[in-house]
Every structure is written in C-alpha cells, then in structure tokens.
Nucleic acid binder design. Sequence first.
RNA 1: GCCCUCGUAGCUCAGUGGAGAGAGCAGCUGCCUUCUAAGCAGUCGGUCGCAGGUUCGAAUCCUGCCGAGGGCGCCA
Length: 540
Amino acid sequence: MTTAAWLHEELTAVIEDECRLRGLDAPAAVPALEEPRDRAHGDLAATVALELARSWGLAPRALAERIAERLRPRLGDRVQRLEVAGPGFLNFFLSPLALLQDGRGMAVDLDGALAVDVGRGARVLVEFVSANPTGPLHIGNGWLSIYGDAVARLLAFGGFKVTREYYVNDTGGQIRTLGASVLAAHRGEAIPEGGYRGAYVSDLAASYDGPDDVEAAGRWAVPRILAMIRGALEELHIHFDSWYSQASIEEGGLVAEVVAKLGERGALYEADGAVWFAAERFGDVRDRVLRKANGDYTYLAGDIAYHYDKLVVRGFDRAIDVFGADHHGQVASLFAALRALGIDETRLEIRLGQMVSLLEDGAAVKFSKRAGTAVPLSWLVDKLGPDATRLLALSSSIDRASQVDLAKAQATSSENPVYYIQYAHARVSALRRQARQAGLELDPATDWSVLGHPRELELIRGLLRLPRVLATAIDERAPHRLVTWLLEVAGAFHGFYHDCPIVVEGDDRVRRARLALSDLAGRAIARSLDLIGVRAVEEM
RNA sequence: GCCCUCGUAGCUCAGUGGAGAGAGCAGCUGCCUUCUAAGCAGUCGGUCGCAGGUUCGAAUCCUGCCGAGGGCGCCA
C-alpha cells in the first residue's frame, strides 16, 4: 500500500472514531489527501477539518488540532512531522523513507500501481473524425482525430471494450455537389458555384470513366477520397475498427423504422407537407423536420437512426461522439430524440472540441474549405512528423479554441516539447544499454533506502502522481492531462540525470538504486506516451 | 435577438473549491576533460476580462456586463 493510501485509512479511522465519541454521523467519505503545490506545506495535506468544522460545531483549527493529536501516535516513522497550518490544514511531511518505499513499490509492480478498471468491460463506441468525404482532412479535423484516438486508447486502458468508428456521410446533397464538381472538371468546364475546387478534384476527374451522371460521379469519388483520408490518418497511427456508411443505414430501412417509432410514441406531426419531430417537448430549442416535403429524410433523421443503431441495434453500452463545435446544433436534437425514444440518455456522451485556427502574422485564420484557408493535415504531418503533431494537438484541452502557429511549430521543431519528453526516455534507454555493458544488473527491487538526494525525491514524487493523473485523464476524457504530467516528469528526470551520476557513480548500492529509479521513470514515460500514441524513442 | 463554449505572463497554454497563481517559447545571465547540452541553473515578466454574490477559503461555483468563437436550415 502506498503511503498516501495508508494515511487516508488512518485518517478515516480517527475521524470515524471521533464521530462515535461525539455521537455524530460519520461522513460518507473522507476526501483523499492532496499534494500541496507548495512543498513548504508538506508532501500531503488533508482538508477534512475545514470541511467538517461547520457540521461539528467546532472551530476548524481546533478540530484540526484534535485530529492531529489522535493521529500522531499512529504514524510511526513514515511521517516525519504532522502540523496544523493556516485555517486548519493537516500537513504531512513524509520521511524520505516513505517516498523511497512507495517508489520501490511502483518499480516492482508498475502495472499494479497504474491499474484502473472503471470500464469493467463495458462496450463503448467512440465515433470521431467522421469528416465528410468531399475532400482531404485539414488540420482542424486532425486535431480532433488525434483527440478521439487518444481518448479511445485511454478508455481501453481503463477497462472499456472500445470500438473506433468513422461515420461516413456518403449520401445527400454534398455528394451530388461533389459529383457535379468532378464531372465539370472531367469535361474541362468551370466548377459550379458552391462546388469543390481543390486540386484533388481535377486529379480525380482525370481518371473518371463512369457515366455522365452526378449521382454516379459522387458515388465513384467517395471511396477514392476516403482512401486519401484513411492515408492521412494512418500517418498519425490512427486506425478505425469500422467505417459506417450513412447510405447503408438509409438503404437498410432503419431511418424509416426509427422515424416510425417516434411516430408511435407520439413525437411526430405533419406540417407544410413535412414530417416534424416535436423536439422542443423533449428539451430541444425548437422542433425539427425529419422528412422533407419532397420525401427525402433530413440529415438529423439519419443521425437519430445512426444513434439508435449504436445504442439499440448494436447494443453498445455507451456511445461517445467527438464533434467540432460547429456541430453544436445537433447536440440538443440528438438528446431530445433519445428521450423521445425512451433510451437512457446518459449512455450518450458528446465531446465538443472548440475550433482550431491558424496563427499567421499574429492573426488567427480560421479553417475553411470554401475560403481556401484549410491547411491539409498531411502537409503538417509531413513537416513535423506524427509524434510532434500528436503532442502538439494533445497539449491543450479541447475546450479551448486553440491557435496553431505554423511558423513556430516548424521553426522551433527542435525545441518542441515532444523532444523534451522523448529525450528523457532516450536517456533512460542509453543508461540501460550502458549498465548492461558495465555488467550492472537492473533490479527494481534493489535497496532504495540509499537514495535521498532532493532530485531523486522530486522525481519519485512526480512518478507517484501518475496513477491519479491517469485516472483523471480517463474519467475526464482529457488526454492533455497526461501530456502535462509527461512534461513535469521529464523535467524532474532531466534534473535528476544532471545532478545524480548513475552508471558512473562510485557507490555500487547507489548505482543500482539510481538505475532502478531511472528505469522506472523510463517505463512510466513509455507507458504514458503509448497512451497518447507518441513513440518512446531509444535514442536521439 | 436567443443558446453553448472560451477569456490566466509579450506569445502558446496548464491549473476548474484549498494555502504567496505555474510551464514552455521569446528576452537577459551562468554551466560541457565524467552516463546524449534536443540538457541544467538563475533572472525578467500577471488587476487570473470587469463588477457583484455564495463559501472558513474563488482563477475555479452563481448572476450581470464586456470581448472572442460556435450554434439557432425542409444544408450536411
């Protein structure tokens, strides 16, 4: 057991005992100990006294003193000092021994230390990218593809059975527009108003040999464009388990079936020759058309059927959609439809990523296919490589509209954070090689008690933070938290490496312990990099 | 007009109920005859958009305002 877990147990025991003495109900749970930002406040801190003071009718400080007094005799040599500070914080100063024990424990069983099983085998469908197959992916698409892929990796690590799916919008007006663009280019005519003008259109048109029909040309072009999209994703090590066709849902009759189901539940009405979904009654901001006056189904009708397919027909326990903020308008409608269909809406989770823009000459330029400001994803990957691209995309939260400074991303590529992290791993790899050559055996269970340098302790503290960070990253679907941790721990490792000789150290016991610590850092970094899909290199 | 998201250092961003707010880049200053200097150390830099409120405690929660982005189609 880690020191933090053990302290939490002791603290809980004291508080429960104190409750009995006072005839009070024990709190549902004593919050976990926190790591204060300021080391002057100890290694771990508890805020229970502040939280319980009111209901116990005591001054927080007095309550903290009382808890501290009861706790002190139980602490032994793993805690150097317990002090009450500020308004009533309980600050624990651990003995180096406790940290070293925890570090050694983690080194001996890293898998055990990191294990989280929040998924319990639940089947989750993660839908992401799903960009219309009318042109190559741009950087904005790319950012969210990388995010979706990292979330899928995290969920799989967290015990979910994950399926990655790309929803292919291979039907409807845009495909006709695409077909018309290809045909026009094929005939050497001008691209029609509102059509697709990229170079890929003329490339495709050159090899088009089908009939002179807009539908046919569109259907012909889609798989070819999808191949381009797939290629760009493969470069980033993003693979899908399933490419799900919108047309197939329509042709299979599911759209009609689901619309009928909504009708049976009294959620539909007709007006102006169209079939409407009474979405407002189910929480949407307005009602929506599902079937147009001309008999065609709307995109929303297909999307509702698609989600019905995910959650009912295919029976996934959970569906996670990763959308760009420009699809924000769909969210309320989809949830309204789930409510109307009687499907537990908590099974659907929609992650909206804010828009990505390009920073050029200090001004943001939005990605727009029409305005011609969409930079192809593959262009950036060619410049930076998959690792730097992925790390750049994952270093900030998707809740924030991020700005990519292309000039900086390229010019400072050697100073890119990805190299800082990979360099730490490469250094560990070099140490392992040199240790082998020097006949120094790597043993995680070696005696760690010979360590104690501030750099060593700082690195161990950082490593011990990983289990909590990982759990949070999974829970919040926030891979950027792992990136933040990687940067911190890489920094701690570089500091340790700089000040603490390892293979060349004279004291053999210290050599072995430092090698074990380095090795642990390397494994923890490699594991985390793998979860965000960035390679851990052996040398640089 | 209504709805959603965001506003933190010159720039790009962490931190979303805990104690004097952090990192990287940019600027300035040191450190390579020992395991990779793609490194380490120091320094400069902030009314956490503004104003109220809730709380023992607010960058974090609530309200209003300002600013940015997105949405509000019988488009997809």
